[in-house]
Structures are given as structure tokens and as C-alpha cells.
Design a protein around this nucleic acid. Structure first.
Lengths: 160, 160
DNA sequence: TAGCAATTGTTATTCTATAACATAATTGCA
DNA sequence: TGCAATTATGTTATAGAATAACAATTGCTA
């Protein structure tokens, strides 16, 4: 459930392989650039802004400008490999790629840690309530700001 | 439930009076500028961006720069009189000021219309699910992108 | 290998938001 | 009332996020 929990998270390579497979099945190309952006996002403990990703790319020695990153992000978003957190203008790796879903995000106000929750109950209830208003749902964005368990206990190690 | 539904929505003046009362009770000042920004937001059929609000203010003959608007918006957000829709970078009047709540927003992809839904069930379920992850909830942002009833029927009059 | 489509590079610009400091208005109090 | 402290607004400049438009390149296919 928690992507940052080593007990649950699949390994880095496993997830990259999953992404490769997914793209092959769909007949879309996970190019070097796109794979690298996905790596960057997954290898960071917290969601990243587009310009932070760009800095890493440039550190690689790669050329690039904002559109370079944004196009890669658009691709990854379309393929459901990452999510965008609108309230923070950052991008986070999806912990359940393959199944298209909105995902619910728990954002810690204090340490900035973000965890993706995938509650079908929430998703279904939201759809049902929307349907009661005759509203046809395409995508959901659920972002919850609060305090993570570590920060409630005052044991969080990293802030920022 | 639908702020745009004339059958349910309280009148413009009623809502302004409510806002006045609320601010008085809380000992905060609904100044001319703040009241005007609230009016502008409420009097428009759709949520507005900060710079669109600024344009209206300037149309009033008032001086102003971005901070003028953003400070007023911050105040109104703090008082729960408006909401910010992070996915669109726009601001919408709250249809239930007084009770602090996150609110769930139904955003039409086709016509841009936004309706605020206040489902305690959604809010409670989200809190419960978050609590199951030992996460303490401060605020919720729920934005649903889809198609409104009018656009499903193809009877929507205004687009943009 | 020539041609087409998809991807990436590049420059410039638009849109959103805030920092920092100056000025004005309001409130509380002597 | 008059003054100090606080709050609110004006003003200039800048930071941050995202896209438009066009050029160059790559990869696939006929």
C-alpha cells in the first residue's frame, strides 16, 4: 500500500520492467528520455516538480528545456505510470500502474511525504455520489493534506 | 446542492449578508476589497482565475497588482468563503460557508461548469480510510473531472 | 533508401504566484 | 483626541509552472 514501505513495494527493476511490458502491450514507446524521467521520479523519496526533474536530467549531461520534461510527463501521465498532484504541482510515481485509477493521496503537511492510497470504496462512493447528480465521471483527483504517522509521533527524519 | 440552481441557491444579497455576519462573529474584517472580490467570484457563472479577477477589479477603476488579488483570495480561503480548485488554478465561491469543509467539485470537461457537492459520506469515508493508514486529516481536496448533465444531453449553452 | 510519423531540441512567451518594501487605514489605549 | 501598534493595501520586481511554435532528429515502413 505504501510505496515507500520496503516490505510492500516491488523493487525498482521490477517496476521498470512492468512499465516496459505495459508500454509494449499498448504499442507505445518508452523511450530513453521517458524511461529516465520515470526512473528519476521513482528513485526520489518524494514527488518532484517538473523543474527539479529537469535539473536531474541536466546533471546527466543531457540537453533539455521545460518542454523536454513536460512532454515526457504527459506521456507517463497518459499511460498511468505517474500521477500529478495538482495541489503541489508535483509528479509522483503510480504504485499500481496497469489499472487506470485516480488514486487518493495522503500528503504530509510537515515532512512533505506523499503516500498513494487506492481505496476502491472511496472511488466507488465518489462515482455514486456524482451519478446521483447525473454527472459522468472521467477522472478523480483526491488529495488529502494532513500529518503522516511519523510526524504525529515526532519521529520524522527528513523535512522538506 | 447546486449553487447555480435558482431553486436552491440563496440570493446574492443573502449570501453577502451571511458572509458579513460570519466575519463579524469571527472578529475579522470583510473590507471593501475583500467583499468586492467575493462579489466578483459569486457573480460569475464559473470559477475564475486570479488574473481574471484582477481584470475585473481594474475595470472598476481600482488600482491593483497580483498581490492585491491573492491577498484577498487568501483571506476568503481562510474564512472558508471560497474554495481553490487546484487542478484548474481557479477560485470558486463556497456554497456552504460557515461549516468548514473540503467540498467535492464536479468539473465539466466540456463546458467548464463547476458544481460543489457536499457529501458527508465521501468526507467521512475518506477520513476513515486515511485513519486506517494512521494519517491525520487536515483538509481534503476532491475534484472530479467529467461531463455535466447538460453536456451529456448536448444541451449546454455556454462553452468556455 | 526515400518518405512519413513520432520524438526530441530550442527559443520565446504566457500564466500563476510570491517576495520585499512602501504607504495608508484601523484599532486600542493613554 | 492623539499616538503607537497592528492590519490592510499599493507597488515593483521576480520566481515558478506550463505551453506555443518551429527546427532538427530519430525510427519505422514501403
Amino acid at each position: 500500500m505504501y510505496p515507500s514501505d520496503p516490505g510492500y513495494a516491488p523493487s525498482f527493476d521490477t517496476r521498470l520492467a512492468q512499465a516496459e511490458t505495459l508500454c509494449q502491450e499498448r504499442g507505445v514507446r518508452l523511450t530513453d528520455l521517458r524511461r529516465r524521467v520515470l526512473e528519476i521520479i521513482w528513485s526520489h523519496p518524494k514527488p518532484m516538480g517538473a523543474y527539479a526533474i529537469l535539473d536531474v536530467l541536466r546533471g546527466d549531461g543531457r540537453q533539455g528545456a521545460p518542454p523536454t520534461v513536460y512532454r515526457a510527463l504527459d506521456f507517463l501521465l497518459e499511460q498511468g505510470l505517474i500521477h500529478r498532484l495538482a495541489s503541489l504541482n508535483v509528479y509522483a510515481g503510480c504504485c499500481q500502474p496497469g489499472s487506470r485509477h485516480g488514486g487518493q493521496f495522503l500528503i504530509c503537511r510537515d515532512c512533505g511525504q506523499v503516500n498513494e492510497m487506492n481505496s476502491p470504496a472511496v472511488e466507488n462512493l465518489l462515482c455514486a455520489e456524482a451519478a446521483a447528480h447525473c454527472f459522468e465521471v472521467l477522472t478523480q483527483m483526491v488529495e488529502v493534506l494532513g500529518r503522516c504517522p511519523d510526524c504525529q509521533r515526532g519521529t520524522s527524519s527528513d523535512v522538506g
